[in-house]
Amino acid sequence: MPPSTAIQPKLEEDETALETVEDVPVNKITSFNGRLQQFLHNGTEAHETPSSSRTTLSQRRINTTKAEYERQAEPIISSPRRKRTVPPTAPTTTATHRRTTRSKSTLIATSPSPSKRRRSTATPQIPPTPPIASPSATESLLRDTIPPNLILLLVGVNPGIMTGVTGYAYAHPSNLFWKLLYSSGITSIRHIPADTYKLPALYRVGNTNIVERPTRDASMLSRAEMDAGVPVLEAKVAAQRPEVVCLVGKSIWEAVWRVRHGRGIRKEEFRYGWQSETENMGRGDDWAGAPVFVATTTSGLAAGMKPAEKEAVWAELGSWVVKRRQERGLNSVVVKEI
């Protein structure tokens, strides 16, 4: 082919392409008088027109966006990992609701109403148990032993609880009464409380109290009770006329003194042992009365005196009793009966 013929079509083709580029609106300031726009359009695919390039890019972007959306939306919904990270928002299942309802109903059923709670906490009404047969607070089973012709009448304050229940004088194990009777010689052996009613026959020794009401301790008696028992005691002595009256405890003599003298006994006026003849008890028109001997208390709760001091006071009384019993010729009888 001649060179002129081959070159001619090519030039015509370039001119057509140039005319096509020149048809595009160009901003000559920002594109270097159209040259940059020309350069860009020359590098595009197979002489695509500007309109077709824009349409292709827009369609490609739309297609890409749709593909990415479909690709991204699918893993979010179906990925197990995404499901683990997102907290469950599903409503409570029927089984869980059933368990919760059952728990609430159980609590409601087991919690008592206010009225029922008051009835459950109330103390049950138990019928009272009949009391055991025993003396009341103002009664004692102990009885006086004051037969006629006694050598010695022992006067206590009042029965203790055990004495009131058993009926035996000075029945509490801690009481020193029976020990002091033996150590002083008033009794030839150490008797037990159950021998209370044997003493008059064996030794001509009797027993009574200034107050009959039993208490745990003599300090529980009032002064009025003690004073009220003095005239009663005086009447007993006057009726039975024992040779000697022994007051077992300082408080008894203090009560007798208050009633007789209208005042309390002073410290310098009190003494253990034999008292003045003017203080004899049970005095009458034809009888001078019984001499009074004040002995120590025998209660185990009283710790004002030592045991040796108590024994010394009781020994003074015991020596007189032994002597008087010998004078009356009663020793042989006592030994035989023991």
Rank of each mutant, 00 (worst) to 15 (best):
L233S: 10
S222Y: 06
G160N: 06
A169V: 08
C246R: 06
Y197R: 14
N207R: 04
Y182A: 06
P231N: 08
G249Q: 06
Y203Q: 02
T196E: 00
T208S: 08
Y197D: 12
V205K: 00
R190Q: 14
V232H: 14
I210C: 11
T196Y: 03
L181C: 04
G206P: 04
W178E: 04
V230I: 14
M226Y: 12
P214C: 00
Y197C: 05
G229E: 12
L202E: 13
A194Q: 13
E243Y: 12
A224V: 14
D227T: 10
L221C: 04
N207L: 07
N207W: 13
L202F: 13
A228C: 13
C246D: 12
G249Y: 05
D217T: 04
L176T: 13
M226T: 05
T163D: 04
P214I: 02
H191E: 10
R223A: 13
Y168D: 10
K198F: 10
P214K: 02
I161N: 03
Q240W: 08
V211I: 15
T166D: 09
Y182T: 00
A238I: 09
V211F: 09
F177H: 09
P159G: 02
G206F: 07
E234T: 15
T196K: 07
Y182G: 02
A218H: 01
P193A: 09
V248G: 02
K250S: 08
S188A: 08
L202I: 09
